[in-house]
Computed example of a mutant assay.
Amino acid sequence: MADSEPGIGRKILSFFINESDEPVKQETVTNSTPGPSKPAAAPTVPNVAGTANVDRKFVEHFVNLLEKANLPGPDYFEYKQALQSMESLGLGEEKQFQAAWASFKAMGGIKDTSILRTSADQYLGILDKDRASFLKDVEKAIKDRVGALQDEHKKLEDSNAAFTQQIADLQKKMDDNKNRLGQISGEITEQSAKITANKDSFELTYGSFVDQIKSDLDKINQYLK
């Protein structure tokens, strides 16, 4: 590709998305019931192939990446630009590729297609390297952010399990206390009855002794004057 020229990023952008189409609007759903907050959906745009709606943010990231990696001289991107210009001619796909190749060769006297394969492979390598770096960052983010949340989640679960066990232990103690309370009520009745019976027996025996002694005193006073 020629050294970075004005508008090259815009040209690269047009190779991958249909800029003429409006960005796909994400439907906003309102819910009267409060719930977990969800991240806002990223604005998307349709790709050139019409097979998917891609994230505009990442489209611009890759376009900037490829623009900075612009190789000197005619290469895959110039050919892609020539190919794009053939779309309005009504040619079949094979004829478009052949006509674009003829136009591309006229740019710099290029005679074989190896430059297209080589430069395209270089750009693929740049994209693959960027993807590897991105996935590494994703893995780190998961470890740092999600991992911390998972640790907190585990601690809270363990804490709740401990509380549940404590509650179970307390409930058992309460049940044991209730059983003992029932036993004590019966024992109170039983012991009260025993003590009362013993008291009555004491009083009866006491009365018998007192009566006997008093009776003897009365007779002593009567018979021994």
Rank of each mutant, 00 (worst) to 15 (best):
L135P: 01
P34R: 07
A49W: 10
I220G: 03
I12G: 00
K178D: 15
K172F: 02
K95A: 15
I195H: 13
D175H: 10
V146N: 05
H153V: 03
T113L: 06
R145I: 03
K194D: 00
S208H: 11
G35L: 03
T205P: 01
D137H: 13
P46Y: 05
K111Q: 11
L127Q: 02
P72W: 01
G9N: 07
G186K: 05
A2G: 04
Q165D: 15
H153P: 01
D158V: 07
R56P: 00
T118V: 11
I110R: 01
L116N: 05
Q166A: 11
I167A: 15
T33W: 04
S201Q: 13
F58T: 09
K154M: 09
A162T: 09
K25P: 06
D144R: 11
E67R: 05
I110M: 02
P46M: 03
M107V: 03
A141T: 07
F209H: 12
S159P: 00
S159Y: 07
T51I: 00
K68Q: 12
V210I: 14
A168C: 07
V45A: 15
S37C: 11
L89Y: 11
N179M: 08
E5H: 02
L116Q: 07
N198F: 06
A41D: 12
F163T: 05
E22K: 15
L156R: 10
E190K: 12
K143Y: 08
P43E: 07
F62C: 11
V24L: 15
S201L: 10
S159A: 14
A141R: 14
A49T: 15
A193P: 04
R117K: 14
L181H: 04
N18M: 01
F134L: 15
K95G: 05
D158L: 06
K105V: 01
K140R: 12
R180V: 02
L156F: 05
P46T: 03
D128E: 09
I184R: 10
D218H: 06
E5F: 02
L91R: 02
I188D: 04
N177A: 15
I110C: 01
A141N: 08
D218C: 02
D75E: 11
A162S: 12
E27N: 11
T189G: 03
A41Q: 15
A99N: 09
D158S: 14
T118Q: 00
S103L: 06
S133Q: 13
K38M: 10
D112H: 08
T118A: 00
M174P: 01
M1F: 04
R10A: 06
Y79K: 00
K80P: 04
L124F: 14
S215L: 12
N70E: 05
T33R: 15
D169Q: 15
N70Q: 06
V146H: 06
I213K: 02
T51C: 00
P6A: 09
A132F: 05
S32Q: 10
Q26L: 11
A99G: 02
L135V: 12
E203R: 09
K194Y: 03
N160E: 14
F209W: 08
L170C: 08
T30V: 13
L116R: 07
R180G: 01
P34C: 02
S119T: 10
D3L: 01
D175Q: 13
F62V: 13
P34M: 05
L89A: 13
M174G: 04
L89M: 13
D200M: 09
E190W: 07
E94G: 03
Y223H: 00
A161Q: 08
I213D: 04
Q122W: 04
S201P: 06
D55H: 00
E22H: 15
K155F: 00
P72G: 06
L65R: 04
